[in-house]
């Protein structure tokens, strides 16, 4: 058994746009009993190349092996892993509260202002508030709003951009995947 302390890693996996890859990638984690804390998939800055952003906790001695397993997949171009200080990252929280709470005095309005959140929509019976930030920040807003009645809450997975300046195709050229 590995008794090393785990660390949080944000993994970026660049892949071809192929059905089934999501499954292939998640299997690599589940097979090793690694819990995926968040997963976001979107097209990257390069046409037809998708970027998976995956947040996990893992022993440092295993992260490089995990990267190897990801890159072993035929349709994976490259995988990178980062710790929080290597990246700029964000998540988004959406909060649904009842409009009557909102118009009842200025408490809720003050919370929203203080947290730099914004109102996306006001309907007669509900209001949708949006907050982007780190998980602690979206959670802090949740806790402040909760006494006023949250009807529904959702938080996105993490999206992250690495601080180093190299672009994907430069890495791909270096390892010989691109001419």
């Amino acid at each position: 058994m590995n008794t090393e302390a785990k660390k949080q890693y944000t993994i970026s996996v660049f892949t071809e746009d192929k059905i089934g890859l999501l499954n292939r990638i998640t299997i690599i984690f589940t097979r090793r009993k690694i819990n995926v804390e968040s997963l976001t998939v979107s097209e990257s800055e390069t046409k037809g190349i998708f970027r998976f952003t995956i947040v996990i906790e893992l022993e440092p001695s295993n992260i490089e092996k995990l990267r190897g397993q990801l890159e072993k997949q035929v349709e994976v171009l490259k995988a990178f892993y980062y710790q929080d200080h290597d990246i700029v990252y964000q998540e988004i929280g959406l909060y649904k509260i009842s409009t009557s709470e909102f118009v009842n005095g200025d408490k809720v309005e003050n919370i929203i202002r203080k947290n730099n959140a914004r109102i996306l929509r006001i309907e007669p019976d509900y209001t949708i508030v949006e907050k982007t930030g780190h998980e602690e920040e979206t959670r802090a807003l949740f806790e402040e709003l909760e006494p006023h009645g949250i009807l529904s809450f959702v938080r996105s997975g993490r999206v992250a951009i690495a601080k180093p300046m190299k672009r994907l195709h430069v890495y791909l050229k270096e390892i010989g995947k691109l001419d």
């Binding site: 071809e16 800055e45 390069t46 046409k47 037809g48 190349i49 672009r167 195709h169 791909l172 691109l178 001419d179």
Partner: peptide
């Protein structure tokens, strides 16, 4: 948007 010159296959 960037495009990779190399085709997929």
């Amino acid at each position: 948007m960037l495009v990779l010159e190399q085709p997929f296959v």
